[in-house]
């Protein structure tokens, strides 16, 4: 593609984002304001993640892009082809082979390794936003580490429902200091944040915030002694690969509302099937047939 520099963003913009990233890494869980640019894709489609990825990419990288855990969802396809076009980088669907993984709403099932970077697309970076809409107020709460309001809200939930109802974007506390929104990953994925060997970067384009978790950072999901945090998933095994420990998508398969549950992580599911694992509704493995 002509007329645009490597990885689309001009160098000054990349420097600005890079400086914000370094401060974000230096202050884990703190949201660093950055002057997000207007990208050639809509706000809400991953403009923050795309800017972070663009600022981090080198020509040697292998990029994986997932949305809802899948490499083949339309938004993942679109972002992957954007970076192929503007940065000419190699892409992969294999989690273990990727050096940078941009994700929306999931952390891959395959454990990440040191040296990998996971870039999250974040819609609302402020974990306190639904308790207090004003940025001027939530900024003070973070400054004072005043998270009483959050605990009160979670406890009210328990009083009313007997459990914390938050199912995704479940707030975490980083190194005992900043309360952070892990982006709308299911709370099933929260434990993968804790002491992950990979570097995790979070980009919120519209809200102009970048934050980070360095490798091996202590990340605790907020809970109470008598109501400990519980990662949950559908109580089924994947109908294709038979995994009963991976996070599942729910698919409606007939007019009577019949369902099946399949791995949301398509690479994980594919590699299990390639290794001969079979679920109850599995077709013969397509790659083997080819």
């Amino acid at each position: 593609m002509t007329g645009y520099t490597f990885a689309y963003l001009d160098e000054q913009t990349k420097r600005m984002i890079r400086r914000a990233l370094l401060k974000a890494v230096a202050i884990p869980g703190y949201q660093v304001p950055f002057s997000s640019r207007e990208m050639p894709m809509p706000y809400g489609w991953g403009t923050g993640g795309v800017q972070v990825t663009a600022a981090c990419l080198t020509p040697e990288d292998r990029l994986k892009v997932i949305d809802q855990g899948a490499d083949d969802t339309t938004n993942a396809v679109s972002i992957r082809s954007f970076f192929r076009k503007v940065a000419g980088v190699a892409t992969t669907e294999a989690t273990a082979e990727a050096t940078i993984i941009q994700t929306r709403h999931r952390i891959p099932e395959t454990p990440l390794a040191e040296g990998q970077i996971l870039v999250f697309q974040v819609p609302i970076p402020e974990p306190l936003r639904f308790l207090e809409p004003r940025e001027t107020e939530t900024r003070k709460m973070h400054a004072l580490a005043d998270y009483g309001l959050m605990h009160v809200r979670l406890y009210e939930d328990i009083a009313r429902h007997g459990a914390i109802t938050r199912a995704y974007a479940y707030p975490v506390q980083v190194e005992g200091r900043y309360v952070m929104d892990p982006s709308p990953i299911p709370k099933f994925d929260n434990p993968k944040l804790h002491r992950s060997p990979a570097l995790m970067l979070f980009g919120a384009g519209r809200e102009q915030r970048i934050y980070a978790l360095p490798p091996y950072t202590e990340v605790r999901s907020l809970d109470f002694e008598d109501y400990p945090f519980e990662p949950t998933k559908a109580g089924h095994a994947c109908a294709l690969c038979g995994d009963d420990a991976s996070y599942l998508d729910e698919v409606i398969v007939d007019d009577a509302g019949g369902r099946m549950f399949v791995c949301s992580d398509t690479d994980h599911c594919r590699s299990r099937r390639a290794a001969g694992r079979r679920g109850t509704m599995a077709a013969p493995f397509e790659d083997a047939a080819a």
């Binding site: 990349k14 890079r18 981090c56």
Partner: peptide, 9 residues
Amino acid sequence: AARAFRAIL
């Protein structure tokens, strides 16, 4: 600059 940044990061 991209390679240098990745090293610094």
